[in-house]
């Protein structure tokens, strides 16, 4: 490699060792001389090889295909083998921490067991139906090409690390496992679509996603896990696996816009929970009262769009596409 400009970068690493101080975490700062083409991984390897061999981290391919080296840089999960130091350093400093939402084994090496348990929970293998052909199953190339997008997932854990739902609800299956589930549901050769969708309707499944797009933002392979979860939601609704609040909410929302062009929050809640769902509605009463007392008076009769008929037309045209 042509040697170019050298620069000293201050790398602060959140470390943790069960054999030191009962595993309490501490931050250690290293000053590393780097070249301008360095990735964060290059710098970490330099620390490990030349400065401090006690630093634990996982890395293998250096080519963004094995998924070993995901960790948080300046608070956001990244695959450090493809993260250029020059892009993330601020005033010649970076902060490196282990992935979130996972227990730490040592320094930057986290325990992926919860990750793999959730992966296993979605039956992550083909379940073909019917007679097995002598040759290959026939399948349209477009379907296979579409699946390459999901198959690009290298199980690095970045999405799971930064998922905002996993921070507050640890039985959520999470973006990686759900994207994997999509891979099978969208494969024309898999015969268990309905069964899989039914399993995903349960607690911890697709309806727990809060659509915060963290997984989309941090995925180093453009797998777009949230998009996959949304596709699973619409497939569920299409297949009438829709007796949960999430699906009801989506359907209610759609119906309200179809009829009025604009949303009415009160009707939305009533339609989601159900007009006669006294218990659930009663739970919401204090919130409604609080709002009223604050002086917020949302109109009961909603505004509507001036040209709501045109909107309805568009719905009729596209709603079954």
């Amino acid at each position: 490699m042509v040697q170019t400009a050298k620069q000293t970068i201050q790398i602060e690493i959140k470390r943790q060792d069960p054999e030191i101080n009962n595993g309490e975490s501490y931050n250690q700062v290293y000053n590393v001389e780097t070249e301008d083409w360095f990735t964060v991984l290059d710098a970490l390897i330099k620390i490990r090889e030349e400065i401090d061999g006690t630093l634990s981290l996982r890395c293998a391919c250096r080519a963004s295909i094995c998924g070993s080296c995901a960790m948080r840089v300046n608070g956001q999960a990244k695959l450090v083998c493809k993260t250029k130091l020059s892009v993330v350093e601020k005033n010649n400093k970076i902060l490196v921490e282990p992935l979130g939402n996972m227990p730490v084994i040592s320094d930057l090496a986290t325990d992926f067991k919860p990750f793999w348990d959730k992966f296993n929970a979605v039956d992550p293998y083909m379940k073909p139906e019917g007679e097995v052909p002598d040759g290959e199953y026939l399948a349209p190339n477009d379907d296979m090409v579409h699946l390459v997008g999901v198959m690009n997932c290298i199980m690095c854990g970045a999405c799971v690390s930064d998922c905002t739902v996993l921070e507050v609800k640890d039985n959520f299956l999470g973006p990686a496992a759900l994207a994997k589930s999509y891979r099978f549901i969208a494969d024309p050769r898999d015969g268990s679509q309905i069964e899989r969708l039914q399993n995903l309707e349960k607690d911890g499944g697709i309806w727990d996603c809060t659509r915060c797009m963290q997984c989309v933002e941090v995925c180093p392979k453009d797998v777009d896990p949230m998009e996959r979860i949304m596709s699973l939601r619409s497939k569920s609704i299409e297949n009438k696996i829709d007796k949960n609040y999430g699906a009801r909410h989506a359907k209610a929302f759609t119906d309200l816009i179809k009829s009025n062009g604009i949303l009415n929050e009160i009707l939305l809640i009533l339609k989601t929970k159900g007009l006669f769902n006294i218990i659930e509605l009663a739970k919401l009463l204090p919130i409604a009262i609080g709002a009223q007392l604050a002086g917020k008076r949302p109109p009961f009769l909603s505004h509507s769009s001036k040209n709501k008929n045109q909107i309805k037309k568009i719905f009729k045209k596209l709603e079954n596409k």
């Binding site: 619409s234 989506a250 040209n307 596409k321």
Partner: peptide, 26 residues
Amino acid sequence: LEAASCTGAGVLQEKNQLLGDTLNAR
């Protein structure tokens, strides 16, 4: 924008992205 519609807030898009994009394009 009197004749405009709700953007869908991502909820509509989860059910039907083409529909959501059409409404927003409109």
